[in-house]
Design a protein around this nucleic acid. Structure first.
Lengths: 191, 191
DNA sequence: TATCTTTGACTAACCGGTCAGTCATAAATT
DNA sequence: AATTTATGACTGACCGGTTAGTCAAAGATA
């Protein structure tokens, strides 16, 4: 084993790993996954290219790390509102919270929509986001069921899709997109 | 002049160009734009790689050709319903028509959503689809204005985004996505 | 010194794009 | 009708550049 204590090693490694993940997120988000080279990630992380491969097995493994890193930041929030939704007020809070999350971490969600329809990484993408997505839908399905909706599953899927569409539009159009007005109409129609 | 008449040349060229465009659409749609090589398009088109460049100036020019080719197929339809929408019945027909279009040309729309968030080709994408998108929104904005909606612009944008979201979900999830049920709920909520 | 970490030159593969030369075809000529 | 000639569509080897990933060697640490 190393002369350094395991704790020290672990700490250093984690710090550098975090740096790499944040550089990768930034570049993937700005340039797109396919157009970001491992070299450029190495430079931005102030790590040699070869050393990247001591932290991640390859480019796709690094992408997986970036996605997990981003998702974990929201785990708390989601556990909070994964308790069932009963009132329209709670619904509104959840929806507004959803968009606050997106606004507070645009880079991550830009990457998310960049990968959404990329056949190249579809398997990885599905693996990571499917459980997340299903949890989302299940909560809304229950909400509409309680409200006596005639097809809660379809309505929940419609809402999920609408949230995707609005987020995508906002992230791509930027400030041209009147996000708050659109959110108000969405809450009006779906609550 | 050429020994062959211009007409003959033109006819041959058009036929081959169409073949190339259809091969490119297929491959771009299946593999993604970035992961499709000019070589593979050449092979599928039964044309040499070099000859591709007699038809299109480069890969991006070929993509532009594919997008225009796909969009032109819908020009008729759009001119038809670009006359204003007044009744809920007309609205419903327009929405259902929209999804029929998507279902009848999945490859094209899969490519559309593949390119949606690709920084690499964003300029081209914007150039081609912005007028198309704005026309779409303007019609719905007028519809909601006539209905006395309190924020017709935002509602139209919300609808456009919802249509995007639903299309995207359907194209990516395939038959798992209960498209017809979701469309019914969408019409219910937005009409 | 023993062990782990880091480096960056290197490899092999792939890509978009080019170009000198080929060849099927049909007009022109006999 | 037979032969020559002109055309441009077509081929595929080739090029410069870029990439993900490897590895031998040097550096750092206790």
């Amino acid at each position: 084993m190393s002369p350094r204590t395991e704790k020290q090693i672990e700490k250093l490694k984690q710090k550098k790993e975090k740096l790499i993940l944040e550089s990768a997120l930034l570049l993937f988000s700005e340039k797109g996954y396919g157009n970001t080279s491992m070299q450029s990630i190495a430079i931005r992380s102030k790590v040699s290219k070869g050393n990247l491969y001591n932290y991640f097995e390859g480019k796709e493994d690094l992408l997986e790390g970036v996605l997990m890193y981003g998702l974990n930041q929201f785990a708390e929030y989601f556990n909070e509102f994964s308790t069932e939704l009963f009132t329209e007020k709670e619904f509104e809070i959840a929806i507004r919270g959803n968009f606050e999350m997106i606004q507070s971490n645009k880079k991550f969600w830009k990457l998310y929509y960049n990968l959404f329809a990329q056949p190249e990484v579809q398997d990885l993408f599905t693996k990571i986001f499917t459980p997340f997505f299903e949890q989302y839908i299940a909560i809304f399905e229950m909400y509409y069921k309680n409200k006596g909706d005639n097809d809660p599953k379809a309505t929940a899927l419609l809402l999920g899709s609408a949230l995707d569409g609005v987020s995508l539009g906002y992230l791509l159009m930027g400030d041209t997109y009147p996000l708050n007005n659109v959110i108000n109409q969405l809450i009006e129609k779906f609550k």
